[in-house]
Every structure is written in C-alpha cells, then in structure tokens.
C-alpha cells in the first residue's frame, strides 16, 4: 500500500487546491489558442483583408454619393471596425467546432480538462486577435484620412465598448461552435454576424432605410455598438445608446456562458 502511494506521488505532482489546477488549465488553453491563432495565417489575413477592403470600397466608391453630415470616412470607420471585430469573433465558432470534431477533444476530456478551460482559451485568443486587427484597421483608416475628434477619454470609451462587444460575440460564437455539427456549419455564423452590420447605421444612416426596417436597425446590438463607437470617437452626443450597447453585450455574455457550459457537458 505504501509502495503504491509512493508510486502515485512520483507520478503526479502534490495535490493543489482544485481552483489552482483549474486556473492552470485555463492558462494552458489560452496559450494554446493564442499560438494556434498566430499560426493560422489564412485566418489572420482574411480577418484583416476583408474589413480593410470593405472600408476602401465604401470610402472611395460609395462615399461620394452618401450624405451623412460628417466626412464619410469619419462616419464609416466605426462600422468597419465592427465588421472587422464581428467577423474575427465569429471565426471562433469555426475553431471551436473543429476542436470538437477532431480527436483532440477526447484527449482533453480523458485528461479531465474542463470545457470551461477550453472555451475560455478560445474566447481570450479571439479577443486578443481582434484587438490587434482592430488596431491595424484603425491605422489604415488614419492613413486614408480618418480624423476623429475624440480625446483620450473618447478613445478609451470606444475601445472599451468595442472590446466588450468582441468578448460577447466571441463567447456567442464559441457557443454556436459547440452546437454546430461541423466547422462548415459553424462558418455560416460568420455570414450571419457580418449581415447584421447592413441593417444598421454602420454604412448608411438609418433614416435612409425603409420605415419598417428602422426600428429593428436602431435597436439591434450591432447598431447600438456602432453608434456608441461613432459618438465617442467623433465627439457626438453619446446618450442612452451607450447603455444599450453595454447591456446587449453583458446579456449576450451571460447567456453564452451559461449555454456553452450546459451544451458542452451534454455533448458525448
């Protein structure tokens, strides 16, 4: 018996509180997801090229025809940032789904790694990825004449609102990734999120839309975030829309965390 206990002790490190182990797993999984993101060159290029092309297209092709009250480039950049972030976050659905459809997940499970650690890894990597790509898009925007009037406070607020929304979208995407039966199906979600940017004030003012669409366009989450970002960056009146943006994000996070936990445990 004592011989057995000794063998056990050399095999496994001394027991630590479960919470320490759980935190260690989360750290390991974040490291894994970050590394995998960095190495997915295609993913990075798509996530960057698409929003930048979109921005150039809107600014140079449509910009002349659109009347928004301010320089169109100043108007459209918040929308482009959001499409960029939304698209990048939505790819999390694909990465989670591929993890769950390859054998890797079985190994993690048989090692008692929790679903929460795995998903958190994906979500944190997604947020990090998107902050980097957002910064790059902003740099391109500045280069083509984006001149926001915001001070440091305005920028911080804009980044905060955007980051919170990216976190919400990433967690939602991860949940969709758990539900989707295949990475291809999960990929459909990226289109859905990108689509939500069109019936919003991201590219054109809402009062140019048909009246039946305006209510939806005004209150849907993407629009509240776009308007908040735009207002904070261009120094416009922020108003209650900022609270709507924050509440939408928090609501989506809460629902996704709960749903992903439940769904993950039910699988298999």
């Amino acid at each position: 018996m004592s011989e057995l206990a000794l063998a056990e002790a050399t095999r496994r490190p001394a027991p630590r509180p479960a919470i320490v182990d759980a935190a260690a797993d989360v750290t390991t999984m974040i490291g894994r997801s970050l590394r995998l993101s960095l190495r997915s060159v295609d993913g990075m290029i798509t996530a960057l090229a698409l929003p930048i092309m979109l921005m150039l297209m809107f600014v140079y092709l449509f910009g002349g025809a659109l009347r928004t009250g301010i320089a169109y480039v100043d108007y459209v950049v918040p929308g482009v940032l959001l499409v960029c972030a939304g698209f990048g976050a939505a790819t999390t659905a694909v990465t989670v789904s591929s993890d769950l459809t390859t054998g890797v997940i079985d190994r993690f499970r048989s090692m008692d790694v929790s679903g929460a650690a795995l998903i958190t890894g994906h979500v944190v990597a997604s947020v990090a990825r998107n902050l980097v790509s957002t910064a790059l898009v902003v740099a391109v925007a500045l280069a083509i004449g984006f001149r926001p009037s915001a001070g440091v406070g305005g920028w911080l607020a804009a980044v905060g609102v955007l980051a919170l929304f990216v976190l919400a979208l990433s967690w939602l995407s991860a949940t969709i990734g758990i539900i989707a039966g295949s990475p291809e199906a999960a990929n459909g979600f990226t289109f859905f999120v990108s689509f939500l940017a069109y019936p919003s004030s991201a590219f054109v003012p809402i009062d140019t839309m048909p009246s039946w669409l305006r209510g939806f366009a005004r209150d849907q989450p993407v629009n509240t975030v776009v308007e908040t970002t735009r207002a904070t960056l261009t120094g416009g009146p922020v108003g209650s829309v900022a609270w709507h943006a924050v509440l939408w994000s928090l609501g989506i996070i809460a629902a996704s965390v709960a749903a992903s936990g439940m769904l993950f445990n039910r699988r298999g």
């Binding site: 894994r32 590394r35 995998l36 190495r39 390859t102 890797v104 079985d106 190994r107 048989s110 008692d112």
Partner: peptide, 17 residues
C-alpha cells in the same frame, strides 16, 4: 481519468503546434 490514457483511432494532436 487520473489512471488511464487514451490514444484514439484518429490522431488527437494540434496540427499547427
């Protein structure tokens, strides 16, 4: 789980690592 390990029918590795 503390006492077993599993090598499945299909490789369970991260291709990009």
């Amino acid at each position: 789980r503390r006492r077993i390990s599993l090598t499945g029918q299909y490789a369970a590795l991260d291709e990009a690592q």
